[in-house]
């Protein structure tokens, strides 16, 4: 038997949907909202599968950033002898890696999100943006576990973060997420059309790792090259994170504004390109 709630729902659902070849669906953004639970479920699915498949799921989540941080600390901190600007070098590296992994992991999974869900894309309708968005949500969950690791380690080093400064994490991670989603939308759409995106991307990300202030601080970059850092949209997010957790100097207002503009530009253009190509995903995938 139907309750009164169901009755109202039917009336709502009975609204007419018109699909017209000449016009894009006016319902898209409403659909995106209506399908919001699918975003959570897709992200949950990927996390559940990953942690169920990997025999040592937790070891993977904690061990990977820890091991990378150890290598970078030895190479850049000990062998190259770069200054950390105060805090232990391992914490500098780990905080950089936190943001970098959010970006690189998110972009990589987002780029694959449509192709690896090809069976769904060709059989079921859902707002396609949810697939790369779910990949970014998964990357955010990973970043949260890295953050816990970072805070535990900072405490172990006796390097207490200022609670007030921790609030800076919010804009830092928001900035990084917008940039990641934007790049993810671009690459997910390109990956459907061009088969070699999958091959180029890991290489590009590897170069990006060394061009970003991940294994070193922005302060060690010589004065005459500082402008190059401003071109890297991820730099601002990393510097903000280090300011939040380690108390390093916050990035300059100019740097922050540029980072934000960069991130928004990538996001808006990515969303537009995605919308423009989305119609034909099921045909070309």
């Amino acid at each position: 038997m139907r309750g009164p709630d169901d009755a109202t729902e039917i009336v709502m659902n009975a609204a007419e949907t018109v699909i017209d070849a000449r016009r894009p669906s006016a319902r898209y953004w409403r659909d995106l909202w209506a399908y919001r639970e699918l975003l959570r479920i897709l992200a949950w699915r990927d996390l559940a599968v990953r942690y169920r498949q990997a025999a040592f799921g937790l070891l993977w989540a904690v061990g990977r950033p820890l091991l990378t941080a150890l290598v970078f600390t030895v190479v850049f901190g000990v062998i190259a002898g770069l200054p950390s600007g105060g805090p232990p070098y391992a914490l500098v590296v780990l905080s950089g890696l936190l943001v970098w992994q959010l970006f690189a992991g998110g972009v990589q999974d987002a780029a694959q999100s449509l192709v690896s869900n090809a069976a769904l894309v060709t059989k079921v309708y859902f707002p396609r943006m949810l697939a790369p968005a779910a990949a970014v949500v998964v990357a955010l969950v990973d970043a949260a576990s890295s953050l816990i690791l970072l805070l535990v380690l900072a405490t172990a080093y006796g390097w207490w973060p200022q609670p007030a400064c921790l609030l800076l994490l919010l804009p830092a991670l928001t900035l990084a997420s917008i940039l990641t989603l934007g790049a993810g939308l671009w690459l997910a759409a390109l990956n459907v059309r061009y088969r070699d995106v999958r091959l180029v991307l890991p290489f590009a990300l590897q170069i990006g790792l060394y061009l970003s202030p991940v294994a070193f601080t922005s302060a060690v970059v010589p004065e005459r090259l500082q402008w190059l850092l401003l071109l890297n949209p991820l730099g601002g997010a990393i510097d903000l994170t280090r300011a939040a957790v380690l108390g390093l100097p916050a990035p300059s207002p100019l740097g922050l504004v540029l980072s934000t503009v960069w991130a928004l530009a990538v996001f808006v253009s990515g969303a537009l390109y995605f919308r423009a190509t989305e119609r034909s995903f099921a045909d070309t995938i």
């Binding site: 039917i10 609204a15 007419e16 699909i19 017209d20 070849a21 894309v121 119609r279």
Partner: peptide, 13 residues
């Protein structure tokens, strides 16, 4: 799943 090249579909519900 895919978008028409021409024409129109109207669905109630």
């Amino acid at each position: 799943v895919t978008h028409p090249t021409e024409g129109r579909i109207a669905v109630r519900g």
